[in-house]
Amino acid sequence: MSRRSGAEEPTAPHRVVSHLDVLLEERGMTLAQLAQEAGVTVANLSVLKNNRARAIRFSTLTAVCDVLGCQPGDLLRVVPREAAARPD
């Protein structure tokens, strides 16, 4: 069984990308409007939009999807391993 060494352990990498910017653009909404309607702070939504989030609460996901009228799969996508390894 692996054991975490402590707070110094580097963050585990992930390949989840957010399409919040695309969904907002399609619906003609701003981040502030979404934050207002979903009851989530602009700071947290900004973290999600800029792909700096490492985890998302189900409550946040539910609130955002309710306002945007989408499913979690529309908001988040896992980049295939090969695509992530490929240099831009």
Partner: peptide
Amino acid sequence: GSRMHADLEGLV
């Protein structure tokens, strides 16, 4: 507590 705090970084 520090480990748990580190886990919460980036949680939205």
